[in-house]
Structures are given as structure tokens and as C-alpha cells.
Write a protein that binds this DNA or RNA. Structure first.
Lengths: 203, 203
DNA sequence: TCTTGTGAATAGGTTCACAGCA
DNA sequence: TGCTGTGAACCTATTCACAAGA
């Protein structure tokens, strides 16, 4: 299969969501361009990366195109194939993320929540199993957790991130206000709201 | 001033945070390269965009470099100059975002929270003023709010986003699971956790 | 000798423009 | 006629490689 460039991958992922939200049966690159603000040539080029070859002359069939993107990126499939992830730090934010159903229909499954406060994890009720941070290593290994959402206090961010990486975590979604220093092969995405806003407007 | 490319802007913003977290007095492009994983030439090119011309031969002075980045991007300054933003939707997530102190030290100031549930905004206590969604337009205009964090239920996401834009909001940080269709000149950043994770790993 | 700053080269992405199919 | 798919041109960004300063 053709190698797809990072920007193109991101756009295709967004397209997939748009398609899954669309009521239409067929859709053209011009319509997608209106919906996204991207050039129509860009959209056609992105889609041609999928090597679908089905869109000739009257647009793409929404379901087929969506399906092809999901297949290409392996989004979907049985629960057993889902990427297992956890939330580390169950303050207000961690708790909110735990309860939201954001992972439904995503290729991720939330299989654990961790907090140092043992009282809290005993009192909190959650459909996701909660553990003490003491058990971080054993649970990450036994539950085969690959990704972590980091929502601990800033002071603990680097320390916890180092621990997570040493236990084999492949990627971290970082809600803290700290820029983490980690080995190059660990994926990190900084999603602190202030940081996102700053990046959004930086002229 | 030189025009700085988008990727370079993002990196400089991260550099600024790294510098503000550093205990060192001076730092070189090689050290920054280790810390970030970016090429050293890239880092020097980024910094040279700032037209600082102070780094010759023995690295950069941490405080001066940080300061220059903040000046360049107008991060900092008096409260009156801060960009005013609000949170729309005070469910668990919105509430958590409201209470966290993420905006401290950022160029943003959280000046309002909105929810349709009038009871909730009466009961909730918060250091940030809370309003009913009914007052959305008047408050956005009177408080001169420029950016919004969208944390409403998915069903209301597009509708609320349209309202926000019609009231003059310039950018939206979108926590919902919906890809918003908005006019090109509105900035949108999708930060739904599942979406971030998907983008992170999409090979 | 170590490190910056930057022209020049290279790599990466986007857009143009059009052939070809329905 | 209306749309896709794609070479070729163009634009953007990164990396190389080295002159020059401390």
C-alpha cells in the first residue's frame, strides 16, 4: 500500500468522522471541500492514497469511502483488537474523562484508571476498574495497556510519564501543563487547553 | 519581522514552555534537540526566525530566549491584554476544565461558563462567573469573549458552535466527538481524547 | 574548539490543469 | 457535462554544510 503522509492521514481521519456523521449516500470532493475548507485537489489526492478507484465521475459512495478509511487505519474491529488505554490521575479532570463515553466507537478501550489516593479509588464508582498507582506496573503489564492519558498534578507529570514509559507505554495524551521529556519513540500529544489555545492563535 | 511558518511557531511555543521549566542558565541547540527530538538545524532555524542574534558561540541565555518567544507571540502581559474565553457546557468535563488552573500564566483568561441548566449554574460554586445559555449572546458581546471551549453533549455541538460563531467567537476548542462544519475563518481544534489518540497512532 | 546563523540542497506537500471515464 | 485521478509545477519546510564569531 501507498505510504500516506502525516497531514494526509490526519485529514482522512477527519473525513472518516465527517462521513460517519453524514446522511448523504454519495459525496463529491467539492462538497467535502466546502465541509472542511481544504482544497478539492487535496481531498482527491488524499482519497487517491487509499487506492480505492471507485469514485469516477459521480463522487464517492459515503459508506464505501468511510469503510475504506477505517480499514486502512484499522479503526474498528472486535474489542479484542482495540488498543488498551488507561487514565492516570483521577482528579476532577481524570474523573470526567473516565466517565465520558468518548472511547465508544473508537479503536480504543479504556481498561483502567489509576490514582495514588487509595481512599478515592475505593469510594469512586466507575464502570472502569480503578487501581492504586502502586499497582501501575503490574496492571499495565497484565492488562497489556499501550496508551495512557496523563491527568496528574503538574509536579508529578514528568515522574509519572517516566514510569509509564519504563513499563512499556507507547503513547501519552498529556493534559498537564508540563512539556514532557521522553525518548523519541514515545508518542506524546499535548492537550492542555491553554496550550491548545495558544497554538491555535499564535500568529 | 520575519514571517514564521506554522510548524516553526508550534515548536517555538513548546520551546518556550521547556525553557520556562528549565533550571539552566544557558542552553544550546544540541541540548534542545535532545530534549525535543527535533533536528538541531531545525531548532537554530526556528530561533533565527526570532531575529535575536544573541546566541553566538555558547548557546542561548534561557531567560532571554524565553522572553523573546513570549514577546514575539505576545504571550504574557497585563490581564487587560489577555484573550478572553469561556467554557460552554458544564457537564463533568466542562466543570473540571473550569476549576483547573490551566489558564494561569497563559495569555488567556477564563471569564465565563455557560450551561442550559439554570439550576446547575445557581448551585455550582466557581471563581468564574456562570451564566445561562440564554445569555450567551449578550455575555459574549459584553464581556468581549473571543474564544470558546466547547464541552456540550454531542447532539448540541454543531448547533452551539453555529451560535458561538454568529456571536463573533473567533476560535473553538472542541471537546465533543463531532467534527464541526464552520466557516473557514473560524479556528477549530479538535481535542476529543479518542480522536487525539487515533491521530497519534494512525500509521 | 564549540556553537550559531544561514545560503544551498533536498525532501515533503499542495495545487494546477487536464486526460479520461460515466 | 461533471467528476475523478494524477503527472507536473509550485510552494513550504527540513537538513546539510560551512563561514564566522567567541
Amino acid at each position: 500500500m501507498k505510504k500516506i503522509s502525516p497531514p494526509s492521514r490526519k485529514r482522512l481521519l477527519i473525513l472518516e468522522k465527517i462521513l460517519s456523521q453524514s446522511a448523504k449516500k454519495r459525496i463529491t470532493s467539492v462538497e467535502l471541500s466546502d465541509l472542511t475548507g481544504w482544497g478539492e485537489a487535496t481531498i482527491r489526492r488524499d482519497i487517491s492514497n487509499l487506492e480505492l478507484h471507485k469514485g469516477v465521475s459521480n463522487g464517492y459512495e459515503v459508506s464505501v469511502l468511510g469503510e475504506t478509511i477505517r480499514k486502512t487505519f484499522q479503526i474498528e474491529g472486535a474489542d479484542s483488537e482495540k488498543h488498551r488505554c488507561c487514565i492516570v490521575g483521577l482528579g476532577k479532570l481524570g474523573e470526567a474523562l473516565l466517565e465520558s463515553s468518548v472511547f465508544e466507537g473508537s479503536p480504543f478501550e479504556l481498561v483502567a484508571g489509576f490514582d495514588t489516593n487509595v481512599n478515592k479509588i475505593e469510594i469512586m464508582k466507575s464502570s472502569v476498574p480503578l487501581f492504586a498507582t502502586l499497582d501501575l506496573e503490574s496492571k499495565i503489564r497484565s492488562l497489556k495497556i499501550e496508551y495512557a492519558v496523563l491527568a496528574v498534578p503538574d509536579e508529578k507529570a514528568q515522574f509519572m510519564a517516566d514510569r509509564l514509559v519504563s513499563y512499556g507505554i507507547k503513547g501519552i495524551v498529556n493534559y498537564t501543563n508540563i512539556i514532557l521529556h521522553l525518548s523519541k519513540n514515545v508518542l506524546v500529544e499535548n492537550v492542555n487547553t491553554a496550550f491548545i489555545l495558544t497554538g491555535m492563535i499564535a500568529k
